[in-house]
Nucleic acid binder design. Sequence first.
DNA 1: TTCTATGTTTGAAATTATAAAAAACTCTTG
DNA 2: CAAGAGTTTTTTATAATTTCAAACATAGAA
Lengths: 300, 300
Amino acid sequence: MARSDTRYREAYNRILDYCSTLAVGTPLPAESALSEIAGVSRTVIRRCLARLDENGFIAWDGREKHLLAIPGKADRISLPDAHASPDDLERRFLDWVLRFDVPANTPLSVAELARNFDVPQHELKEFLAGLSRFGLVARRKQGGWMLLGFTREFAVELSDFRSVLELNAIGHVVDAPVDHPVWARLAQLRDEHIALKARIEHDFHAFSELDESFHEAINSVVRNRFVAEFQKVISLIFHYHYLWDKTHEKDRNEAAIDEHLAIINALEARDGAAARAAAQHHLRTSKTTLLSSLRAHDLA
Amino acid sequence: MARSDTRYREAYNRILDYCSTLAVGTPLPAESALSEIAGVSRTVIRRCLARLDENGFIAWDGREKHLLAIPGKADRISLPDAHASPDDLERRFLDWVLRFDVPANTPLSVAELARNFDVPQHELKEFLAGLSRFGLVARRKQGGWMLLGFTREFAVELSDFRSVLELNAIGHVVDAPVDHPVWARLAQLRDEHIALKARIEHDFHAFSELDESFHEAINSVVRNRFVAEFQKVISLIFHYHYLWDKTHEKDRNEAAIDEHLAIINALEARDGAAARAAAQHHLRTSKTTLLSSLRAHDLA
DNA sequence: TTCTATGTTTGAAATTATAAAAAACTCTTG
DNA sequence: CAAGAGTTTTTTATAATTTCAAACATAGAA
């Protein structure tokens, strides 16, 4: 009933590794030096030293600590199975919401989600607290959390917000200096778009990835932490919906390729007005696609 | 060492009040009906009934429960002092950061903050998790949290983001129908601006509040949860800095009043380009003010 | 029976308690 | 007096515990 000692265990193994680089009889460095090496506090180092002493690897008496034996692989202590990475949680959570089409106003059980996603409860709670800033979940008065859900309204507002951010990004690209990496990237993307268009009949599924790259390239010009944070969520949601709405997928993707190319052309011509117009057109199409994919889900 | 029973206590008092509206001998409604009345689960109601029974206010035997005596004010149970509202936490936290000019890269002690703000620790952690989405705080590898801080970069990015949102809002206002409430609000604000300008010599402090109202009015036209969420943080930060940067405060405010009036005029003339230009000018001034207030702090 | 209200069980959320870790502080010794 | 070891205090991460919600089961009335 307390915090885990993973930190100590990892530190012990790290110190063990360090010791095996020394010769028998060498004095070990000071506790504070060791704490630097292992990246933990002195408290942990002292626990490690105590264990090393106990196991006969060192002789420890105050400042005197000598290496008695060189530890091997077998002497390391076992670590509890590392659970799933927290960076991944957002992706997996949205994946779950979208893939299983979890309805709006579903109560979320922190305990259950933590089990399913294999993360500690408090980590999940923190994650939900973060998501609540995007208005996707909210606290309930009776306690617990609630998925506000991927409703039509949410989709509309998300699309609109995306448009605002992306039109702004377009403006930045037009003003980007000639040596800005975005130009090389756009040239490359143009080739990829043309190549995909040539083999669209069989390979239209490949568009989804290309779409993401394209929008990422545009938005990468805007260096802004707030924009970046939103972009992550936005691109995930659009990405999934692109994947799942199967109606006229080939035609849609082919049309989108042309829209992308129109934007690239206008940008390379440094024609801000044309680029903005092309982007506006493309974003409107995207919004329609997103909304119709919601309708398709509703009917299913 | 467990969750508080505030819910039960509040429910008990509410049921007590309900009972005092009945006559002695009346049968009480079903448990589920009572749970509706008090807004809690049946579990809590049963605890309340048990206490009512114990204290002799009702006779309870299965479905038979009659009122034996009418409870008075003195029979209510006391509630633990409600601690500060969580809605307020954000305002108080930012107030603390900005007012005391907490430097960037300050480690935040959850324990200490929770004490000072008089909220449970886990509430504070959730709050910080939410803030981390805005890039104002982040987790540390050694555990705990870190204030990334109100750096110059943060201010620049915040200002830029604000401009993007607000210019978008301006576009929405121009397109708003004549019967939209924003027009009445703007007309009113114009009067207030003119009135304040007339007495600016003595009352220039009053501008800060007017500034907030003005920007809120503009942004209220955009119905978007993402925008709204950011607006709260943005307006708080700008509000505080307006208050604290005392250099040329009167002149600055007087100039800002004119800038606001220019925007209002352009909007009422439905001149989108002029409104945008006026807003852009005003936002640039705001950004400069924000940045110079940071410099002033640095020197202090 | 069928419906409704109560009794019962189960599971989750909020809050506290506590081990582990960090950090601050004091004491020794070269 | 440094630099490092010993010690204490504080803080964080997590489990334990209680309260609460809700599902399930049962019994009495229509």
